[in-house]
Amino acid sequence: MKATLRFARTTEMTLLVIGVVFFVFLVIASHGDLLEANSLRVLLQFLAVPVLIGLAQMVVLAVGQLNLAVGAVGGFAACAMGVLMADHGVPVPLALLIGFLLASVAGLLNGLLVVLTRINGFIVTLATMTVLLGVQYRLVGTRTVDAYPQGLKSFGSYAVFGVLPLIFLVALVVAGLLAVMLRRTVPGRQLLASGGNPIAARLSGISNDRSVIIAHTLSGAILGVAAILTVASSPGVNKSIGGDWLLPSFAAPIIGGALLTGGSAVVLGTVLAAFIVRFVDTARAEFSLEPSWVNFVVGTVVLGSVVLGQVRTRRQERRTVVKAPDAAVAGGVS
C-alpha cells in the first residue's frame, strides 16, 4: 500500500500518465489510424534505438559522469560491422560480435581515461567522440555500406504478430537486464552507491573508480546493441549514423528524472521518456509539421523539467533546513 502510494508520486507515474494521455490524443487525432498494426509497428520500430541511447547515457549519469561520445561510439561500431560484412565477408554473427565488443572497449577506454587521468569526463568523452568520428569516416568515407546479408535486414524488420518489432523487444530486454543489474546485483548497487554518495561509498569499502569504469563500459555495451539494431533496421550505414544521437541521449534520462549529480537509476523513466519523445515525433508527422518542431519541443521540455526538478529539491531542502533549528528551539524550551 505504502509502496503503491510512493510510486504514485514518482516521475515515472507522471510520465506514464502523460504518455497514455498523449497516446490517446494521437489516436483520436489520427481517427484511429494509429491503432492499425502497421502504424503501431512503425511507431515501435523507431523507438528501439532511442530507448537504448537514452539508457546508455542514463547509466553514466547514474555514477555522476556523462558521455558525449554516445553517437560516435554507436556510429563507429555500426560502420565497423557494416564494413566487416560487406567488404570483408565476415559472417554476420561474428561481425556483430566484433562490433559489440568494439563499442564496449570504447566505453571501457572512456572509463579508464577518466579514472587514470582524472580529467573531467566531459572533456575525455569530447575527445574520444572526435577521434571516433574520424575513425568512422575513415571506415566508410562518403559511401553508404549496404551490401550485407539479407538475413540481417529481415531480422531488423521482422515484427511479432506484425505489431511488435523484434528490435523493439531486444531494446526492452536490454532495459530489463539493466534494471535488474542496477537494482539487484552487487556491482549495480555499488555503482549507484558511488553515484549517490561517493564519500559514504568509499567509507564502505566500495571503489568509486571501479564503479566509473563499469558504468562507462556498460554504456559502451548498450551502444553496441544500439549499433547492431541500427545496422539491422536501416537500409545501410554511412558516416552520419549516430550524428543525431547526442541530444536525445540526454533528453530521455533527464526527462525521466535522472539526477546529473548521480545516484539515480531511472530505467523505466528513461524508457517512458523515449516513448514521449517518439510521440512528439509522431504528432509532428500527423500534423505534417517541420521536423525541427521536435527538437524545439524536446528542448523546451528538458529545460522545463530540470528547472522544475531544481525548484522541487530546493523547496524540500528548505523544509528540512527549517526543521532542524525548530527542534533546537524546542529543546531550549523543554
Binding site: F122, S292, N295, V297, G299, T300, V302, V306, V307
Partner: peptide, 30 residues
C-alpha cells in the same frame, strides 16, 4: 539568467538551449 536563478548546472541549461535553438532556427529559416 536561467542558471543563476535556478542553480541548474550550466551544462544542462546550455544543452537544452542548444536543443531548443536547433529546432527554432530552421523553423524561422523555412
Amino acid at each position: 539568467w536561467v542558471i543563476a536563478r535556478t542553480g541548474v548546472n550550466s551544462f544542462v541549461v546550455t544543452l537544452a538551449l542548444d536543443f531548443l535553438l536547433l529546432g527554432l532556427i530552421p523553423l524561422v529559416y523555412t
